[in-house]
Design a protein around this nucleic acid. Structure first.
Length: 840
DNA sequence: AAACATGGCCTTTTT
DNA sequence: GGCCATGTTT
């Protein structure tokens, strides 16, 4: 979004009619001609109310799958269609960038181009936009850097070391999380010091660290994630006239996922929706009127709306306290539960009808969540019918469990369910590995959502640090990161020499490089420094042309390419013998491609825009679609999404509920909500799976079924293989060696309440095998069958599945896939290159 | 300064 | 099982 759009009509001088929302909308008498009639099609009465209600404050309590996104987008569309608001007067906050993109798309679909100029973004993105404009007001520049948690951890680590804070038991991680929590409460080092017990030396050191951290951020012209929100609030409070600009501008503020807002975000919303004008009093503005034929007519400024004062923006929040899963990062459920107190006169609309899931899935969800004692009772219902039973499965190991998931996905696929309509959830990111291994072997297309891996790779962080060094020369962290990458023979001693020189001369670290001859370092090192300085200077000419000029769209990509080439970064990787460095080159090429893609999508995008996007949209998956692939993600990432078929894996004690949260106040309840969120993502089919053993950092541990499983009524759940089946004597057989059970093997024998019992039919079991064998049956060494020639009819032997016959071979080269019918394990697809198979 | 070896720690979830 | 920090060697 450009500033030109941001400054669309109505920003300060023009104000459209705000309907008096205490009673029925003004067009109610003439329903037939209202321009938003079609927006109400297919909505139930509560949803209609949520779309059409006009007033200062509206809380929409939206149960899972109750159509809240639809309601929210239609509400925005109706404001626009009825000419109650200009696009530029709408601020909609979502939780993720992905959700923001989808909402924008849906609103555009409803109202077309007039959606342009709306702010639909996350809290963080919105605050960046505000801060970039206003940074000069309080000691920053608009080219500030955004520190992600990795960056701030690195900085804190350095400070902890410098302050020798570890002697007081302050680890970098603990310090970082404490600072983050405090910032979420809008505390700073001074205000915290006033309440802290300063006779405790550890407290004193912490306060010192906190203050030093904040100083360093300011010096580097940088904000961390929490600052983006907190400093915006600070800005609004310290400069009311600045705040008023935004208060006048945003007349309709809508916040999704309100149950997951923290105090700082709550305060921000409060500041934004407060009546403007207290500081300047010049509350004037023309008003556009809805004219026939879509013409806008502007009324002369009038004296306000009755009271003589301007109202605050109207606020709409949407949330569901049963889906609050971010307390760990400061989300305060009271924001939603006390909304009516915070906004007297607020109206509440309840959406309880679910349009997503079958009754069986909903009943299970209701049953689980009802175990949370501290909630208002709310029951989701549907009229789509019972649907399939929930399928349970217990694997012998995480790989066995993963194999079940893979097999079942193939079965769904054969039954006509598209891969893109299937998702696999897990509690912790590390669980994805076992699934990935099996999926790769099974040639099952998948996509990991939300894992920020790409941008966390060292080479990508290096590339970004080069860009930051150009964009924000004050950022010493970035400079320190790149100064010896690639190796230039510049070690700690030289770095400290430069840093000292910079302090002495009162210049930045970056500028100190320009005086390499004055540093008193050896000639080789001096030349290396001068070269780096020259490369950075050349790059900034490309990416940051002199004021007035506009950089060409390709500037960022070109500049990055130049930096990587002339710095010697590419050369160093190419010269390396390490096989991994080849992949690093590919990643960097990918990074350049991302920059070019960005230029295509944002022809006017600057280097800063690019860095902002990368910092805030850091998971690349938000940008790509997952069409044709199964989606893998954590339960947290799953919030807000829905799929025809959902697998919730690792439903074990110590995983969900996670062992760390078990002891925390409110922890088990939050974990239950997390499980609830997972369940309610499913439209038609839900699978709950677990493993009896799980390898956690080398060690194999025995896992117990999650307590949450017992909260699901027996009749809703069909165990394909229950925990009891697996625990029974003789039950340590690998599933892979068993005949395919085809949906009747387990026969629902186990129950959620009889784990470990021995009363399970054993007929189909074979007597061999032991637990260790299955604990980790994936060899870590890379296998390469790339050359194996296979043709339909060939007999093969697989390490786990036994003998089978090749039905067909598809794909090319490294991606050749064998379709094999195993004598006992049934049909499988195998990636030939890596499958543990041999020809017979 | 760089390359290599060892030992400790760990893992919750994310903008 | 892997990351990171520290220590040792060249």
């Amino acid at each position: 979004m450009t500033d030109a759009q941001a400054a669309a009509p109505g920003a300060a001088s023009v104000r459209p009619i705000i309907l008096d929302g205490t009673s029925a909308p003004t067009w109610a008498a003439d329903a037939s001609s209202r321009p938003d009639e079609d927006l109400l099609d297919g909505l139930n009465p509560q949803q209609r109310e949520a779309v059409t209600y006009r007033g200062q404050a509206l809380l929409i309590v939206a149960g899972a799958g109750s159509g809240k996104t639809s309601v929210l987008t239609r509400r925005i569309a109706s404001l626009l269609r009825n000419r109650e608001a200009w696009p530029s007067q709408i601020l909609a906050i979502t939780f993720t960038n992905k959700a923001a993109g989808e909402m924008r798309e849906r609103v555009e679909h409803l109202v077309g181009d007039s959606a342009r100029g709306m702010w639909i973004s996350t809290f963080h993105s919105a605050c960046v936009r505000i801060l970039r404009r206003e940074a000069e007001q309080f000691g920053f520049t608009k080219s500030f850097t955004i520190y992600d948690s990795g960056d701030s951890r690195a900085l804190i680590k350095r400070l902890v070391k410098e302050h020798e804070a570890d002697a007081f038991g302050l680890t970098p991680a603990a310090t970082q999380s404490r600072i983050s929590k405090l910032k979420n409460e809008l505390a700073d080092a001074e205000s915290y010091a006033r309440t802290a017990n300063m006779s405790d030396p550890a407290e004193r050191v912490f306060v010192e660290l906190f203050a030093a951290y904040q100083r360093e951020l300011q010096r580097a012209n940088a904000f961390d994630f929490d600052d983006l929100i907190g400093q915006t609030v600070f800005l609004f409070r310290a400069f009311p006239q600045v705040a008023d600009v935004y208060r006048r501008r945003f007349r309709h503020v809508l916040v999704d996922e309100y149950q997951d807002t923290n105090h700082a975000q709550y305060a921000l919303i409060h500041e934004l929706t407060r009546p403007p004008g207290a500081s300047t009093g010049s509350a004037t503005g023309g008003r556009p009127l809805a004219g026939s034929g879509g013409m806008m007519i502007f009324e002369a400024p009038s004296t306000g709306s009755g009271t003589g004062e301007e109202d605050g923006a109207s606020l709409t929040v949407v949330g569901d306290s049963d889906q609050s899963i971010y307390a760990f990062r400061g989300a305060d459920i009271r924001n939603i539960s006390e909304f009516e107190k915070d906004y007297p006169g607020a109206t509440v609309v309840l959406l309880e009808q679910n349009y997503r899931s079958t009754q069986n899935i909903l009943s299970a969800a209701n049953a689980v969540i009802s175990h949370n004692f501290d909630r208002k009772d709310k029951r989701l219902w549907t009229d789509v019918g019972e649907g399939e039973k929930i399928i349970g499965f217990t694997g012998y190991s995480q790989h066995d469990e993963a194999q079940f998931v893979a097999d079942e996905i193939e079965a769904l696929r054969r039954a006509g369910v598209d891969y893109s309509q299937i998702a696999v959830f897990y509690r912790t990111n590390s669980q994805s590995r076992a699934l990935e291994e099996i999926f790769i072997r099974s040639a099952l297309p998948y996509k990991i959502m939300g894992g920020t891996k790409f941008y966390e790779r060292a080479e990508i962080k290096d590339a970004l640090a080069y860009l930051v060094a150009v964009a924000n020369p004050a950022d010493e962290m970035a400079m320190r990161r790149i100064i010896n990458r690639p190796r230039r023979g510049i070690g700690d001693v030289t770095i400290e020499t430069i840093a000292r020189y910079a302090v002495d001369q009162q210049i930045t670290f970056r500028d100190a490089l320009a005086n390499s001859s004055a540093l008193g370092v050896g000639p080789k090192i001096q030349a290396a420094i001068a070269h780096l300085d020259a490369v950075l200077a050349e790059a900034s000419e490309i990416m940051l042309p002199a004021s007035g000029e506009l950089a060409p769209p390709t500037a960022v990509a070109d500049g990055l390419q130049l930096l990587l080439n002339k710095s010697g970064y590419y050369d160093a990787l190419r010269a390396s013998k390490d096989a991994q460095d080849e992949a690093r080159i590919e990643n960097l090429d990918e990074m350049v491609a991302v920059a070019r893609e960005f230029a295509r999508n944002n022809p006017e995008g600057t280097l800063l825009d690019f860095l902002t996007e990368v910092a805030l949209v850091s998971d690349a998956d938000d940008l790509e679609d997952a069409s044709g692939s199964v989606s893998l993600m954590t339960l947290h990432t799953a919030k807000g999404l829905e799929y025809d078929a959902v697998f919730v894996t690792g439903v074990e004690e110590d995983l969900i509920p996670h062992r760390i949260s078990a002891g925390e106040p409110g922890g088990p309840q939050e974990e239950r909500r997390l499980f609830y969120v997972g369940i309610t993502r499913a439209r038609k089919r839900l699978y709950l799976s677990l493993a009896m053993t799980r390898a956690q950092f080398g060690e194999v541990t025995v896992a117990m079924p999650s307590r949450f499983l017992q909260e699901i009524p027996l009749e809703l759940l069909h165990w394909r293989q229950s925990p009891g089946d697996v625990n029974s004597r003789g039950g340590t057989q690998s599933r892979a060696l068993n005949a395919r059970r085809g949906g009747f093997g387990g026969s629902g024998s186990g129950s959620g309440k009889r784990y470990g019992d021995d009363l399970v039919p054993l007929a189909r079991r074979e007597p061999t095998g032991n637990l260790e064998r299955f604990a980790n049956k994936i060899p870590s060494k890379v296998r390469d069958n790339g050359d194996m020639e296979l043709a339909p009819g060939d007999r093969i032997r697989h390490e786990d599945f036994g003998d089978g016959r090749v039905d067909a071979v598809t794909g090319e080269g490294a991606k050749r896939v064998a379709h094999v019918r195993f004598d006992t394990a049934g049909p499988k697809k195998l990636l030939i290159k890596i499958a543990p198979i041999s020809k017979l």
